[in-house]
Design a protein around this nucleic acid. Sequence first.
RNA 1: GCGACCAUAGCUCAAUUGGUUAGAGCGCCGGUUUGUGGUACCGGAGGUUGCGGGUUCGAGACCCGUUGGUCGCCCCA
Length: 413
Amino acid sequence: MQKAQPVRGMQDFIGEQAARFEHVVGTFRDVSRRFGFRRVEVPVVEFTSVFARTLGETTDVVSKEMYTFEDRNGESLTLRPEFTAGICRAYISEGWQQFAPLKLVTHGPLFRYERPQKGRYRQFHQLDAEVIGSAEPAADVELIALADLLLKELGVGGVTLQLNTLGDAETRGKWREALVAHFSAHKDALSEESLRRLETNPLRILDTKEAQDRPLVDAAPSIDAYMSSEAGAFFESVQAGLQASGIAFQRAAQLVRGFDYYRHTAFEFVSDALGSQATVIGGGRYDGLIESMGGPHTPAVGWAGGIERLMMLCSEPAADALDVAVVPMGAAAELAANGLLAELRAAGLSAEQGWRGNMKKRMERAAKAGARFALILGDDEIASGGVSVKDMASGEQQAVSRDGLVSWLKARA
RNA sequence: GCGACCAUAGCUCAAUUGGUUAGAGCGCCGGUUUGUGGUACCGGAGGUUGCGGGUUCGAGACCCGUUGGUCGCCCCA
């Protein structure tokens, strides 16, 4: 039999890792609640067409990088590689138009069939925030402010916000044409990679890592020259809103999104500590997506952030402390400990006991569990109707009556 | 899909240019103390050196394959 092992790119978390995961998700819940975002739940599995249609049937992304399989009815299903498409599908099929504008958050596992590397796994986890049904730049500002506060509360340092605009449909189209014309005129100077992108995804040439492309990219036409007055005003408004919110950003002219449904704002919070997988939170406005999926024209903006990447960058969460460890000695005390534990837990205190071993062993377990107090319960205590309470930090020990025990502990724990 | 590096105890790592019964720290279990932890001392369990083949008198070490990991490329929704 094969040795038990996880599927490639899948991870198991325990201890500090699990605590960090919980810390990131818990902070996200808390911060998003303060912004008035509501939780939404959508399936992990969708019809393949939900993702294929929004991503383009022919791209690498669809053909090679999705977990796609046939179910027993021969239907092509896909484990979600992102949140947005599924949420938009739900928006259309559940008639959530009636609730618009919607401020939604969710988090959970996503799946991409890729080669694992630093901060990139086949099953990974993201936080996700979307505003659906609002065309106002204020929605973009609020969404970015949510991400900004989240990073601050997590204590993530060394992150900068990069901001760009892709303009409206008209601006984007003209700019794209100009870029294609520019690069096509200098094909002989382009790297092989960029030549390929010229055919598949010309905007992404701006994102090149090839030094030889640098001069051409720097000389490429700027979107600003093609910006419609409406698109220009929108971008100005977003920038002014960020400034007024006290959120620092950098204009990143090379920051682009390949798909046509992206409009206006594009942004990424980029870390200087994660190697080549540097984006911690990325998002933008996708006014054309829901329409392209067969729904009504619906402006929307959103972002997603990788939980694993945030876990690597956030400050270490405080270890969970245990209020009370019960240390029973003898059969009568072990029996009595059950009632004592029930009482403590019902009162809101965290309490557990060592299930076996002599007193030394149980005290060791109490210390290892991080207990504030050890409650020693033996024949002497049962006879006197009290409990010996040891403060694990100071080592001081005193007798407390059984009747007043819970209130005594609650006052101190 | 491509490239580089890596794989020894539960974990982190040793093992002289290929040489005999593969070691240590931490952790775990037990004891010094059958009613006292965080520090001490003593003892113990735990390895077909990822897996398969090859070279050699002899392989943890060298070669080939394979699986997995790490980092990068492609891609990045």
